[in-house]
């Protein structure tokens, strides 16, 4: 299933996208938040029980109000303090944001949290889950009313290109006219695919890894055939590495 994304076009005409969180991961984050609320209430319950020394009636009243306030204010407070994140959302790398990509407002946070009363009906967020499932932006009713979405926060790291490309002898560079033709013939998506294969090479099963790089190498060999002295004795994975190197890095 394709990950739903929120696409925003800025007035400058730039389009950027944010991956949206689906109902399952949001439910898991909610379970974690529920656990946090339970822990908070238990701790609070112990603290409030000290009021029993003064009055049992007062202790019970304070607990009743505290239970209500904590269960509602947890989401509002944490999302406001952490710019759209609760404990559960932090751990699952989710964030609430304005559906137009603007800064989220306090009123939006309050509305999406108050409308949990409807989303939670009849139990376990059935209504909210259904709405989220069918909504193109994965919004529950609270999100629709508050004009918010929940996005997945990508792990932001730049690829370690040096590890893949630098310091390796590249036999293809001895044929600059063929390298130029290769750069011309290879589509950006193909180049990106090869780069990703190299970046994730250790995640594959050994057999799958051999098969993948064999197919990629065959594909690139067919695009621009290099003479045998440039390719003999080079494993498929090394060939793909050389291809990516000449595509992504021009010699200075």
């Amino acid at each position: 299933m394709k990950t739903p994304v929120l696409q925003i076009r800025t007035p400058e005409g730039i389009v950027f996208s944010q991956a949206l969180a689906g109902p399952v991961i949001r439910f898991l984050a909610w379970l974690l938040d529920l656990f946090c609320v339970m822990v908070a209430l238990t701790v609070l319950g112990y603290a409030i029980s000290l009021l029993n020394l003064i009055s049992t009636n007062l202790a019970l009243a304070v607990y009743t109000v505290s239970y209500f306030v904590v269960s509602i204010a947890y989401g509002i407070g944490t999302e406001w303090a952490w710019r759209g994140q609760t404990v559960g959302k932090r751990l699952f790398r989710l964030r609430v944001m304005d559906a137009e990509g603007l800064r989220i407002q306090f009123s939006q946070i309050v509305i999406r949290n108050l409308l949990r009363f409807v989303d939670a009906l009849p139990m376990f967020y059935f209504v909210g889950g259904l709405a989220c499932w069918f909504s193109p932006k994965c919004q529950r009713l609270g999100d629709l009313a508050a004009n918010t979405v929940v996005i997945r926060i990508p792990r932001l790291s730049e690829p370690d290109l040096d590890q893949i490309l630098a310091g390796k002898f590249n036999s293809l560079r001895h044929f600059p006219h063929l390298v130029a033709r290769l750069r011309q013939n290879v589509a950006p998506t193909e180049a990106a695919l090869a780069l990703q294969a190299l970046l994730r090479r250790d995640e594959f099963e050994p057999l799958a890894r051999i098969e993948l790089f064999e197919r990629l190498a065959t594909h690139f060999r067919e695009k621009v055939p290099f003479p045998p002295e440039a390719t003999d004795g080079i494993a498929d994975e090394q060939y793909v590495r050389n291809v990516v190197d000449v595509i992504y890095r021009t010699e200075r």
Binding site: I8, T10, P11, I14, F16, S17, Q18, M97, D98, G101, L102, R103, I104, Q105, F106, I153, P154, L156, S157, E158, P159, P188, T189, A191, A192, L195, Q196, I247, Y248
Partner: peptide, 29 residues
């Protein structure tokens, strides 16, 4: 052009944050 997805995501995240700050016209209380 050809994009390395990680860098593109990084830039998209930066632009998204900056866009929210710059284009927000509602009064900040």
């Amino acid at each position: 052009f050809s994009a390395e997805p990680e860098i593109r995501r990084y830039l998209e995240s930066l632009v998204a944050r900056a866009y929210g700050e710059i284009h927000e016209t509602r009064e900040r209380r």
